[in-house]
Design a protein around this nucleic acid. Structure first.
Length: 286
DNA sequence: AATTGTCCCAACCGCCCCCTT
DNA sequence: TAAGGGGGCGGTTGGGACAAT
């Protein structure tokens, strides 16, 4: 006697029927709405379609930097309570946030070879990713995004930066004369953990990460130089992360193809999910 | 050009709580 | 008090889009 229920993607006609019905009866009594609208859908399906997609307040599209920051902050407080987190982001649904977390954040954790709920990963988020996002927001607000490659930043964590600057190892960006900058660019020494961050380096695909033994004809403005690398043989893989951690490296360089970046490696290896840090001296994220 | 792999998001599933009867 | 239905929530999946080979 029960009518055959439809599943899967909603059609334009179904959306129209649901919207019309809600405009008359309001967004409640979902089973009643489903029947009244003549939809062969469950009430729950109608509710989900309305709340996650059709509701006029729902924002679509990529999360802004501010929203990403908010998600990370709220998740540190609420954990996987997506509806609670969604309450803190105007126009965003729990489903969207949940998807963001799974596709971006959890993937990042996987690449770090650690559990998304581990202390190690939480530290990475709070000490590296969040400060970096905040820095990007500030840059955007200051309208100086176009010059971010060559200007020192005041990015935290401060101790990480201090470690970078106090080392005898040389790091930084080359200036227009292809000489090492007087002030090493801190940004070159930090982790670039997400798509919005990697875009900073987007114009430099094909550049070469330079070590002492590199071929200098590859040098050009914007190239990042390193005089010393964690492992110039580039033999480490993600699986060695724990070993390096035990050896005192709190941060590390690796990227999608599971190789450490070393002298001669190219920016071509970097992608949206690359995590890289060119500073073996940065041993603590505390 | 065809095939295969990967990513991402909309939607579903199952569990739970609350309210009504 | 128990049963049943509605609704909320977090976890999971299916499939389209895109990239890589």
């Amino acid at each position: 006697m029960t009518a055959e229920l439809r599943k899967g993607a909603w059609t334009f006609e179904e959306d129209s029927k649901l919207i019309d019905c809600i405009s008359i009866h309001g967004p409640a009594q979902w089973s009643y709405l489903a029947r009244t609208a003549g939809l062969k859908r469950t009430g729950k399906s109608c509710r989900l379609r309305w709340l996650n997609y059709l509701h006029p307040d729902v924002k679509h599209g990529n999360f802004t930097l501010e929203e990403q920051i908010r998600i990370l902050e709220l998740h540190s407080h609420w954990g996987n309570r997506w509806s609670k987190i969604a309450q803190g982001l105007q126009g965003r649904t729990d489903n969207e946030i949940k998807n963001y977390w799974r596709t971006r954040v959890q993937k990042l954790a996987n690449q770090l070879n650690c559990d998304v709920n581990s202390t190690q990963f939480r530290d990475t988020l709070s000490h590296i990713w969040l400060p970096r996002l905040r820095e990007r927001v500030q840059e955007a607000a200051a309208g100086s995004a176009q010059s971010s490659m060559v200007q020192p930043t005041n990015t935290t964590p401060t101790d990480l930066i201090a470690n970078c600057n106090n080392t005898t190892t040389g790091y930084g960006l080359l200036d227009s004369n292809c000489t090492k900058s007087e002030t090493p660019d801190q940004e070159a020494n930090q982790v670039s953990p997400a798509s919005d961050l990697i875009s900073t380096y987007g114009d430099h695909h094909g550049d070469v990460l330079l070590s002492g033994s590199n071929r200098w004809e590859n040098i050009q403005e914007g190239s990042i130089y390193t005089d010393q690398l964690i492992n110039t043989s580039a033999a480490f893989s993600i699986g060695y992360y724990s070993e390096l951690e035990e050896a005192g490296y709190g941060c590390c360089i690796f990227e999608e193809c599971n190789r450490w970046l070393g002298g001669g490696d190219s920016f071509e290896y970097l992608n949206d999910d690359s995590i890289w840090l060119m500073h073996p001296a940065a041993t603590s994220l505390e």
